[in-house]
């Protein structure tokens, strides 16, 4: 591997180095580097238009970054350079799954079917790429039952088991969010990327989401990278927070650290630049005393 490897230790699952993404004349992300630790919930926050979703799209292959390297290290030690894989291979081989800011469910399929589609690659192999399955040979039948069992477990976890046979498009907004997460988990990822999972949820649904995410981390060991606007969610569940503004990282650390960073406060409150400097000076003065 290249130069980035030495900064990466066993605990790093995703290492983003010098990532840049340019759209025409617009530099959406500018030389961004950060790491996601295995088993952590890492949050990517920042004001509107900071480039959070662009980072996601680069990680999950929907955009090809202009520059930079994104390394995914699996539990078994396999490493993948994500910027070189096509979007579906990132899920299939590198085991990175994602959700979308505007929920993208298969509305006309049932909830259960949504979860079965997510297990496509596993089932394709079991069905001998359709040929064996069509002839009724091989392990397809057993695997298909196992897939339904996996789906059932996720439905229970996401509290959707009663809606299993309803069309996904018929679910409430919060339930659709949970289903999309459950569906991403059915691909068997090591890293789960969630794009604003709490957006538009009421407090009760938000709480249920926290429980689901904590459960995913604790019980499956899946690392989570999430974009979030809702600070209460971020502060409550994340182990690590990366703050973006105008495509650049302005802060990186524990929730407590980030919460008190004057640059972050300024970015969120929209303070003028000189005022930020003032705040920084005050802080420095304060700490000097």
């Amino acid at each position: 591997m290249t130069s980035g490897t030495q900064t990466m230790n066993q605990d790093t699952i995703l290492n983003v180095e010098h990532l840049s993404m340019r759209f025409g004349g617009l530099m959406a992300i500018n030389d961004l580097s950060f790491q996601v630790k295995r088993g952590d919930i890492t949050a990517l926050i920042g004001p509107n238009g900071a480039g959070k979703t662009t980072v996601f799209n680069c990680i999950t292959g929907f955009y090809k970054p202009t520059m930079g390297m994104i390394t995914m290290s699996q539990r078994g030690g396999d490493k993948f350079l994500l910027e070189r894989l096509s979007d579906f291979d990132i899920t299939k081989q590198a085991k990175v799954a994602r959700t979308f800011q505007n929920i993208r469910l298969f509305g006309g399929l049932t909830v259960l079917e949504n979860l079965l589609v997510a297990q496509h690659n596993k089932l394709m192999k079991a069905s001998g790429y359709t040929v064996m399955g069509l002839l009724g040979l091989g392990s397809y039948k057993r695997e298909a039952e196992a897939a339904i069992e996996t789906a059932r477990q996720w439905l229970e976890r996401a509290d959707l088991i009663d809606r299993a046979d309803d069309p996904a498009g018929d679910l409430s907004y919060g339930a659709q969010r949970r289903l999309e997460i459950a569906r991403a988990m059915c691909t068997g990822p090591e890293l789960l990327c969630l794009d604003e999972p709490a957006a538009g949820l009421n407090p009760k649904e938000s709480l249920a989401l926290n429980v689901l995410l904590n459960g995913i981390r604790d019980e499956t060991g899946t690392s989570i990278l999430l974009i979030e606007h809702d600070m209460s969610v971020v502060m409550e569940i994340s182990d690590h927070v990366v703050v973006l503004e105008y495509g650049q990282k302005i802060c990186d650390g524990t929730p407590d650290h980030v919460k008190n960073d004057p640059k972050v406060i300024a970015a969120y409150l929209g303070v003028e630049d000189d005022e930020v400097e003032e705040i920084i000076h005050e802080e420095l003065d304060g700490s000097a005393q």
């Binding site: 999950t60 979007d87 579906f88 899920t91 799954a97 979308f100 469910l105 298969f106 496509h120």
Partner: peptide, 14 residues
């Protein structure tokens, strides 16, 4: 059928 419903979601599922 998933493709008919949402191609991008399909790709995100590998």
């Amino acid at each position: 059928e998933a493709l008919r419903e949402d191609e991008i979601a399909c790709r995100s599922l590998g």
